[in-house]
Design a protein around this nucleic acid. Structure first.
Lengths: 239, 239
DNA sequence: ACAAAAGTGTTCTTGATACACCCATGG
DNA sequence: CCATGGGTGTATCAAGAACACTTTTGT
C-alpha cells in the first residue's frame, strides 16, 4: 500500500455485474441483456457497468439495477455482494475487475432496453446457456449463494410482494432449490420462527381461483433463521 | 461494458487485504503489520498489497501471504475471498478498491518483516484496536465469516497441523467462537461426520504432559458438514 | 360431486444436550 | 493418590420427515 504511483500500472477498470433474480409463474428467472458489439456481440450477458469515480460498488450496482430494470424505486430491493472476479484474461480488451452482486425482485416488470437501449429479457434460469465473458460462472455462483442463504436467513420474503401467502413463499424455496417441499412442515417451520412473517389480520386471497383462500402475511423483522431450514439432502454445500 | 476508454476515468488501484488467522496457545491471533508512512503512519494494519497486471486477486493474495508470513510454501493453506471494499474515501490518497481475503494458518511462524521490511506481529484477536483504513471492519467481517463457516464446513482442520488431536480441533472452534463446547458431544459429532477426520492408526500424542495420550487424526476429504455444527445460541447470524 | 389448494394433527426417527462415569499419564 | 485431559455411556428433549385428514373455494 506504500510507495505507489497512480499511473505506475496499466489501469484497472472496475465494473459491477448483476445477477437479478425474480419469480415468474413459479419459476426462477434471470435478467439478461444482449450485447451489441464485440467481443461476444449478439450473445447474452448479465447487466452491469462501470463503477464511477465517486461511488462505491454497492452504489453502482443499485444504480445499474434501476437503469436495467426500469424501476423507479430500487431502494428497498435486496442487493448483495457476491464476490469479485479478477482473472487477468476475463475480458479480452483490457484488465477488468468485476464486483458481482445478486439482486432479488418481488415482481418482474417487463424487460425493456436499459439506458443504453440494449435489448433485455427475463430468461428462465434453466434455459440460460453460453453467456458472455465469465457470466455463466457468476450466474451459477449467484444462484448457489441465494439458495444457501434461503437456508439460514429470512431472505425468501425479498422475492415476495408486500403481502403474500405461505404458498407463494414456499414457491420461492422450491424454485430456487429446484426441489419440492412438504407443505404442512414448511408452514409449521415458517410460523414457528419468530419474526419471519407476521399475519395480515383478516385478509385472505384467492390463489389461482380454485382452492381455499389463503391467509396473507407480511415480511417480519427477523433476518436470521434459527434453526436453519435445510435443503433436502443437497450434497454440494458451498465451500 | 461497451463504449469504453481505458483512460476515460481516474484510475482505480486494486489491492488485496489479508486477515491471516492462527491459533497460539489456544487463542485466536491475527497477523498485523505496522505502517511506516502516512496516512496512518505508526498504526497497525492488515497485510496486503497491489494486484499486479498479470495476476488475479487470488494470486496476489497468495503471493502476499507468502511474503508477509515468510513461509516458503503457502500452496496448501486455506485462502478465501471475503468481499470487496470500495467506498470512494476509504483511502485518502486515491481511489483504492480492495479485495479482502481470509487465510488460516495451522502453525504460526514468528512474525518478521515482510519483503518491504515492515514490522509485523501476531496480535491476539481480542486486543486489536484502531487499525488503519477500514481494516477494523474487514477484520471483524473476516472473523464472522470464519466463525460461520466452521458451522457448516470442515474448515476447522485448516487451523490444525497435518496430525492433530480432537482436543486441538475443539480448541479451534472454541477460540473462533469464543464459547466452550461439551467435549463428549463434540467428539461424537466430528466422528459421526464421514470424511471430516480420519484416524492415524496406532498413533497417540502426549498433550501438555499431563493426562491420557490422545489419538491422532488427519483432515478428511469432506468439505461440508451435514448436519451443521451450530454455535450455541449465537443470536447474530450473518446476513 | 369433484378438483384444487389451504390448513391441522399425529407418529416416528434423528440429532442435540447435559450429564455421570471410566481410563491413562505425570507429578 | 490426585490432578489433568482423553474417551464412553446414557437419559432426555427438541426438531425434522412422512403422511393422513379436514376445510373452503370454483367448476
Amino acid at each position: 500500500m506504500d510507495g505507489y504511483d497512480k499511473y505506475a500500472f496499466e489501469p484497472f477498470a472496475v465494473t459491477v455485474d448483476l445477477a437479478v433474480f425474480t419469480l415468474r409463474a413459479g419459476a426462477l428467472h434471470v435478467l439478461l441483456v444482449e450485447r451489441g458489439r464485440e467481443p461476444y456481440a449478439g450473445q447474452w450477458a448479465l447487466p452491469g457497468g462501470f463503477v464511477r469515480p465517486d461511488e462505491s460498488a454497492e452504489s453502482a450496482a443499485r444504480r445499474e439495477l434501476g437503469e436495467e430494470t426500469g424501476l423507479t424505486d430500487v431502494s428497498g430491493l435486496h442487493l448483495e455482494q457476491l464476490r469479485t472476479y479478477s482473472e487477468p484474461d476475463r475480458d479480452p480488451r483490457m484488465r477488468v475487475v468485476s464486483v458481482a452482486f445478486a439482486a432479488l425482485l418481488p415482481d418482474a416488470p417487463e424487460a425493456h432496453g436499459g439506458s443504453d437501449a440494449a435489448q433485455a429479457r427475463w430468461a428462465p434460469y434453466g434455459s440460460v446457456r453460453d453467456l458472455a465473458f465469465d457470466h455463466g460462472r457468476i450466474l451459477a455462483d449467484a444462484r448457489e449463494r441465494v439458495g444457501a442463504k434461503l437456508e439460514y436467513t429470512c431472505l425468501a420474503t425479498a422475492f415476495c410482494p408486500p403481502e403474500f401467502t405461505l404458498g407463494e413463499l414456499q414457491q420461492v424455496y422450491e424454485a430456487v432449490w429446484g426441489t419440492a417441499l412438504d407443505r404442512p412442515n414448511f408452514r409449521r417451520k415458517v410460523l414457528a420462527t419468530p419474526g419471519f412473517v407476521e399475519t395480515v389480520p383478516g385478509a385472505a386471497r384467492l390463489t389461482g381461483g380454485r382452492g381455499k383462500p389463503a391467509a396473507l402475511y407480511r415480511a417480519g423483522t427477523a433476518a436470521a433463521l434459527h434453526p436453519p431450514l435445510l435443503r433436502p439432502t443437497p450434497e454440494g454445500r458451498p465451500a
